Structures are given as C-alpha cells and as structure tokens.
Amino acid sequence: MTEFSSPSLALGGGNDGPESLASPARISAISASARHPGRFEILVDGSTVATLSLDGIERLGVRLGVAYTESLANRVVVESAALHTFDRALAMLAARPRAARDLERMLVRKGEPAEHVAAAVERLITLGALDDAQYARQFIRAKISGAGLSRRRLQSELWRKGVARDVIDAALTEVLEVDEVDEDAQIAQVAAKKLRTLRSTDPATTRRRLYAFLARRGYDGSAIRRVMDALPAGADSEADTLE
C-alpha cells in the first residue's frame, strides 16, 4: 500500500505538553486504498475519515500536515459521498449496459443522493461511458435476435428505460435498415420457434397460446392473424410451414 505520512504527527511531534492537546487535527496520511483501486484513504491523526480520488485530493488541497478544519472536513465529506455515487454507477455499468435515465433511477432507488446521482450521470455521459443511442442499438439487436421482440415492443421497452423517443426511432431505423430486418419474416420465425414447444397441445390450445405469445412480444393483431392464417387447419405443430 502506498502511504505518505507525517512522522512528527505520528509521534506527536515530540511534544507531550498541554500545547499538544490543544493542537488542531491534521491530515496525517494519504494511503492508496486496498479495497478501491485508484482511490486514496485520508487519515486524520491516524484515523481514516474519507476515501477520495486523486482529482478530489488535488481539488480540495488535501496535503500532509494540513489542518483538518471544519470547512475542509465538510468539503471532504461531500467529495467522498459524490465519489461513492460515481463509483457505484461505474460498477452498475460494468455489470451490464444501461440507459442514462435508467441508471439514474436505479442509483436513487439504492439510496444515493439525487444531486450526486445527477452529477455522476452527467460525468459518465461526458466521458462517453453512457450513450443512450449506442445502448438503444445494442438493446434492439439483442432483443430482435434473442427474444424476437416487435418494433412496437422495442419502442415500449426502451421508453420505459428512459430513452428519448427520437433516439429510439433513430436506433430502430438504423438497425432495421443496416441489418436488413424483414419484420414479416421475423414474426414468422418467432412463431415457428414457439410452435416447436407446443407439439403436445391440441390445435385450439396451440393457436390460443401462439396468439398470446406473439401479442406479448408486441406484434399487432393484423400481423399475428397473417401468421395464424398460414397454419394449416387443425395443425398443432406445423412450424415448417412458417419458415
């Protein structure tokens, strides 16, 4: 662990008189955090009072031997809390991509102060770590290929996550055109895949479950009816007829 300390402070400065008891608290060490890489623990008279980034240390003028006044202590507390929120946001993004508004809501829900959340999200956007347009494109591609969601369902899901409508529409247009997604072929493929799981059901149940399945994925009634009409009468598992 990298540590910068003040020997005179650690030893009490060699002064055991009454003056030493009245001396102000001072920053006695700045140590690299073992638990949080890239962060530093601030020690005052040997006790850890906060964890800061190097930028925060420089911005606040935190140095060895500096008197830990009430004013400095208040600023350190605010800086440390803001850094905690920022680091938590980074950890959540590392776990999985998120839209900016969705990340903001999650952080507030977990108890992070709203003002620190707003600052963290703004900083992440500036750094390029949060990009709703990129997130929307990734989300659309994943959900089309994986869950077979319709355009309408994709719009709804992204809107619920806080992505702006114009960003959603632009991402949908780009993905559907670049990837040359045929929406009629897509619903047929989704239906065929579902039919393979309904081989043991009777025809009426198959049709009812298939219709409900496609509706949940956001396909409109006319598109679903076209798929249903393509099924042979009485068929319960004719997936090949849809492909």
Rank of each mutant, 00 (worst) to 15 (best):
Y68C: 09
I42H: 01
I30W: 03
R196C: 05
A29Y: 01
P113A: 06
L210S: 03
V49T: 13
G146K: 02
E58N: 14
A81D: 13
L210V: 03
L60D: 02
H116V: 02
D179S: 11
Q189N: 14
M106P: 00
M92Q: 14
R153N: 06
S20T: 13
A170F: 03
G12W: 05
A230H: 07
L231E: 01
I125R: 15
G162D: 04
L21C: 05
S200H: 12
N74D: 15
T241F: 03
P18H: 11
L124N: 07
D182P: 10
R105N: 10
D182M: 10
D202L: 08
R75M: 07
G56E: 05
D132S: 05
G146S: 12
N74V: 08
V175W: 04
V76T: 12
G14N: 12
A95S: 14
D179N: 09
L83I: 06
P113K: 04
R207N: 04
F139P: 00
K143F: 08
I187M: 03
I140L: 05
S71D: 15
Y219L: 01
A67D: 14
R208I: 10
A99D: 03
R152L: 11
T206E: 13
G46M: 10
L54T: 09
A120F: 07
G17A: 11
Y219N: 00
T2M: 12
A235N: 07
K143N: 15
V181A: 05
V108Y: 00
T2R: 13
E183H: 01
R96N: 09
P7N: 11
G46Q: 06
S222L: 10
F4D: 08
E115M: 10
G14V: 08
A34C: 04
D166H: 11
G218N: 07
G218A: 06
G38A: 14
L154W: 05
A91G: 09
S145E: 13
F139G: 00
R207T: 02
D16I: 07
S47Q: 15
D184M: 05
K193S: 15
D229L: 13
I224E: 00
I168K: 03
A89F: 02
K161W: 00
A230S: 15
P7L: 13
R207S: 04
A212E: 12
A223E: 11
F40D: 01
V77W: 04
P7E: 13
R209Q: 15
